[in-house]
């Protein structure tokens, strides 16, 4: 092996796109492998960058184990869960493109939860809690809120991209918000009026966009089309017929 080849084996070249005051700044970073065969995750790369070249690099993470859902970034333009996504030579790590960037790889997230404020689980008291939920309910509640599903969602894209401070909540929905509403529909404890309410909320968030859409993709494999979008569309049709 030549000297250069040995050296190549020890390093991995990536681009980290930092961001400040509204401007992107790509930085080349040489990740030093901790052993020859190491296949580092994106989060390893970011942590090493922070330890060495970019001490103030801002990025979100929590559990390092694909549970907390906060570390999502774009790798080569596609949303990936950083703590469990292997990085390859020349990969580009950047903030998620679907949400407004605050600093570096940190995006603002809370306009999504605020969209559902006051719209879920109202008057849930008093119902009998001792009923079993279906497998589908549990599939939906496995969502870790990583927001990877925002990618290429035409409904979400309808939101103004104006990152102005006053924009506290998004007007149009996204697969995650629909999933939250559909959990209410699937919940055996919900009353009929709560279920109808949830379906109406989905319509208000722009459910009709889904009609002409090939469907969404979940970062951890929840069947969004089959278990969220289609059931909501069908249910909303039924309500409309009535």
């Amino acid at each position: 092996m030549t000297k250069k080849e040995t050296k190549d084996r020890q390093y991995l070249n990536v681009t980290i796109v930092t961001h400040s005051e509204g401007k992107d700044m790509p930085v080349n970073f040489k990740y030093k492998k901790r052993h020859d065969r190491e296949k580092p995750m994106a989060l390893d790369v970011l942590l090493q960058a922070q330890e060495t070249k970019l001490p103030d690099l801002a990025f979100r993470y929590g559990c390092r184990a694909r549970n907390c859902g906060v570390c999502t970034i774009d790798i080569n333009g596609l949303p990936r869960i950083a703590c469990r996504s292997v990085v390859r030579e020349n990969d580009k790590l950047k903030a998620m493109s679907t949400l407004p960037v605050i600093t570096d790889l940190v995006v603002r997230r809370d306009q999504i939860s605020r969209q559902l404020r006051g719209k879920i689980y109202r008057n849930s008291g008093g119902n009998d809690l001792n009923v079993d939920a279906s497998e589908d309910y549990h599939e939906l509640t496995s969502c870790i809120e990583c927001y990877a599903c925002l990618h290429n969602c035409p409904m979400h894209e309808k939101n103004s991209s104006d990152p102005s401070e006053s924009n506290e909540r998004y007007e149009y929905g996204n697969p995650f918000s629909l999933l939250k509403l559909q959990t209410i529909v699937m919940d055996p404890v919900s009353s009929n009026s709560q279920k109808n309410d949830a379906i109406t909320q989905a319509v208000n968030l722009g459910l009709d966009t889904c009609l002409n859409c090939p469907g969404c993709k979940c970062g951890i494999g929840i069947d969004l089309k089959g278990k969220v979008v289609n059931p909501l569309i069908n249910a909303s049709k039924k309500i409309a017929e009535k």
Binding site: S124, G125, L129, V131, D132, H138, T141, T183
Partner: peptide
């Protein structure tokens, strides 16, 4: 009451 559903 907030949606945690154990097995019954």
């Amino acid at each position: 009451a907030n949606g945690l559903r154990p097995k019954i």
